[in-house]
Design a protein around this nucleic acid. Structure first.
Length: 204
DNA sequence: TTGGCGATTGGCT
DNA sequence: GCCAATCGCCAAT
């Protein structure tokens, strides 16, 4: 759990992102999410993702393109941000070819940079709770609809980077909190990592 | 125009 | 573990 130096992290090139949604979800484990705020830089290592592939009844693109979900149809590597349950924002990375609606939900990160900023944004000092869960992650990183459609393969307000550190063993299982297509093993996580959300039994 | 419904969270039992 | 809060979205009226 050594914090990586951001200077050794480089922004992800779109060409290295797998086109396939499930493959992208796995690929993103261990990568870094960087958020630039006026107060400073906030960042963390991705430890949990979920794939919402082509034709997924649980995916927001299932019923076609709308003003809300259009970012899912952008070329892979763009942000799709939406509000869930009236209170929590969710950060997704668009996947597949341009014009095809699919994406990867970033469910949790292990905080590495700007922890004091995250603590203020979240109203807690419990490191484990800062960004464990998709809504908490967005709150900690000050992510909302204003970032919807942003290119995450470009340094700016929010981007994805490499990490010098190798992620732990990657587990795969059912997605959390959905009712349709709930059985598909499209959730990826770092095994036995304390910053992964969901029941302990699902993180082994 | 309206009503049902979430890719969740935090507080309480 | 259970449950209410909360509100934008969209299918159907």
């Amino acid at each position: 759990m050594i914090a990586p130096t951001l200077t050794s992290s480089r922004v992800l090139d779109r060409a290295e992102l797998p086109v396939d949604t499930a493959q992208l979800a796995r690929f993103l484990i261990g990568k870094i999410v960087v958020r630039k705020l006026t107060e400073g830089v906030v960042a963390g290592r991705i430890v949990e993702t979920e794939a919402y592939p082509i034709g997924d009844p649980a995916g927001h693109a299932y019923r076609g393109k709308t003003p809300r979900n259009q970012a899912l149809f952008l070329e892979r590597g763009h942000a799709y941000v939406y509000l869930a349950y009236g209170s929590s924002f969710m950060l997704n990375v668009s996947s597949e070819e341009p014009g095809v609606g699919a994406g990867v939900l970033i469910r949790a990160i292990e905080p590495t940079h700007g922890i004091d900023i995250m603590e203020r944004r979240r109203g807690t000092a419990r490191l484990r709770d800062l960004a464990r869960g998709p809504g908490r992650l967005c709150a900690a990183l000050s992510i909302d609809r204003r970032l919807d459609g942003l290119d995450l393969c470009q340094i700016g307000a929010l981007w994805l980077g490499t990490d010098a550190q190798i992620a732990g063993e990657i587990g795969q299982g059912k997605r959390i909190g959905i009712t349709r297509a709930a059985e598909s093993p499209l959730r990826f996580y770092v095994r036995n990592n304390t910053f992964v959300s969901g029941p302990r039994a699902l993180n082994l």
